[in-house]
């Protein structure tokens, strides 16, 4: 889907008026997506069993009914559901993301505090995964290395992230002591969690890339290039990688979402601060404000990434650049 769309968008790069229209369409579609996501999140939270007041008070609380009613009123939990829904949609538009009732402080403060950690982890893991995938796919085109890597890739993809994280922590952190269990400088803290996240990703990306490269190799232009004397590496770097990359870059967009999910597991194991744990606690604790803010954040990120990815694809794939023939 994206390739066809990208081709359409790519060819329209040549006509400015149409570019704005395309952009406008994208933005309205994005707004729709955000609304849908927010509504879905609200519905989901309304359905989670358990009274938020109970969650706030903790197990074996002996709070009186009056005290509970008081808390409920203060948080607007006794308003009819549709009113709560409208408020939940309206407030973020005014920049008011509410107060987390678990942590009793503004949601924006929590996000601002925890987001950088997760973002850093995700970006580093992504970069690592891409580096490994490119290295594995591009530099092992033939021979025994190819077979070995081909064997390892499915294993990397299949390994559950939390198991990887646990094992890495157990061996390299608690066992050999190469990395601190808690504390340490940011680089030390990142290495093991980033590896745990990057490995399955690298496996998937590597497989995709390899398939893309194989496919591109069979194209006529590859034979021509080889006939002109271009070595394997040059071929890979200049031509086939671009072709294969466009497919991979498309996947990379949705894989970033996977990274955020994986961050939950990794942050739990390594006791890292980050949005993952915040999200987990908020879902379990029915902390409406936090979940809504996270949903909106995820939606915005997704939309941005999609736009960027489409632009990148249009740039990378020579076919769309020329705005002409489809392959």
């Amino acid at each position: 889907m994206t390739r066809t769309t990208a081709q359409r968008v790519g060819s329209r790069f040549l006509r400015p008026g149409a570019l704005w229209r395309a952009l406008g369409r994208r933005i309205s579609a994005a707004a729709l997506v955000l609304w849908g996501a927010a509504s879905l999140a609200f519905l989901v939270l309304a359905a989670v069993p358990g009274d938020p007041v109970d969650i706030m008070l903790g197990p074996h609380s002996t709070a009186s009914p009056e005290a509970r009613a008081d808390i409920r009123e203060r948080w607007g939990l006794n308003l009819p559901l549709w009113q709560q829904y409208l408020l939940a949609l309206w407030r973020p538009l005014t920049g008011d993301f509410g107060i987390s009732y678990q942590q009793q402080r503004p949601v924006t403060a929590i996000l601002a505090e925890q987001l950088p950690h997760t973002l850093l982890l995700a970006v580093v893991a992504m970069a690592l995964a891409i580096a490994i995938a490119v290295g594995a796919a591009a530099f092992t085109r033939r021979g025994i290395f190819r077979s070995i890597v081909q064997l390892l890739e499915p294993v990397a993809v299949a390994a559950p992230t939390f198991w990887l994280a646990l094992t890495l922590a157990s061996v390299f952190s608690y066992g050999l002591g190469w990395f601190p269990a808690i504390g340490g400088n940011p680089v030390q803290q990142l290495v093991l969690p980033a590896i745990a996240l990057a490995v399955p990703l690298a496996g998937t990306l590597g497989q995709l890339l390899r398939d893309g490269l194989d496919e591109a190799d069979r194209q006529p232009f590859a034979e021509t290039a080889r006939a002109r004397g271009l070595g394997t590496v040059g071929l890979v770097w200049r031509h086939t990688l671009r072709h294969a990359a466009s497919g991979t870059v498309t996947m990379a967009g949705t894989l970033f979402g996977w990274l955020l999910g994986g961050a939950v597991l990794v942050e739990s194991v390594f006791a890292r601060p980050g949005l993952g744990r915040v999200a987990l606690d908020a879902i379990m604790g029915r902390d409406l404000q936090v979940v809504m803010a996270l949903v909106l954040f995820a939606g915005v990120v997704f939309v941005i990434i999609t736009l960027v990815v489409d632009a990148l694809v249009a740039f990378l794939d020579p076919r769309t650049r020329r705005g002409g023939d489809r392959a």
Partner: peptide, 14 residues
């Protein structure tokens, strides 16, 4: 939260 991390933090001097 993880017990092995607490113990690991102690043994590694964190």
């Amino acid at each position: 939260p993880e017990e092995s991390a607490r113990y690991g933090a102690l043994t590694s001097g964190q």
